[in-house]
């Protein structure tokens, strides 16, 4: 039991952080905060991956003369790619936010939903 707690502790921390980010994404009303939450969510997944790549007593995966044990380079490569994907998504999301702000005058989700419903109402009146 103790063995598994020690062995899995790192993953649990990563999972906790992931969930904190995930919560920020789905619970907050502000769009910028959602994007920040999304970033935290993704960054924590990166921590999970990098933890997978660590080897006991290993050193960074750059070949040098007197080192035998290296950490696993593959997760590092994957995460490099994923970080880039993350920043690309962030950039696009932020530019969407700017446009939303200009179109709706607000970046709160509830305001936007309200504005859309107000737009629908006149059409329903016409129908009646």
């Amino acid at each position: 039991m103790i063995d598994s707690i020690v062995g899995l502790y790192n993953y649990w921390i990563a999972i906790f952080l992931m969930m904190a980010g995930f919560y920020t994404v789905i619970a907050s009303d502000n769009l910028v905060k959602k994007i920040v939450g999304l970033n935290i969510f993704q960054t924590s997944v990166f921590i999970l991956y990098i933890s997978l790549g660590k080897v006991e007593g290993g050193s960074p995966p750059i070949v040098s003369a007197n080192i035998d044990v290296y950490s696993n380079p593959l997760p590092h490569v994957l995460i490099l790619t994923a970080i880039v994907v993350g920043v690309a998504t962030t950039a696009l999301g932020l530019s969407l936010i700017i446009r939303i702000k200009k179109a709706y005058g607000s970046v709160e989700e509830s305001d936007i939903i309200e504005a859309d419903q107000q737009m629908l109402e006149p059409t329903q009146d016409e129908k009646q």
């Binding site: 994007i35 970033n39 990166f46 790549g53 920043v87 962030t90």
Partner: peptide, 23 residues
């Protein structure tokens, strides 16, 4: 600490750098 120097480099440059500027 987890031996991922390349990733750390990128994360510092992206997360603490360019993402913040854009945000």
């Amino acid at each position: 600490v987890l031996d991922a120097v390349d990733v750390a480099f990128t994360e510092a440059a992206v997360g603490a750098g360019i993402s913040i500027v854009l945000m």
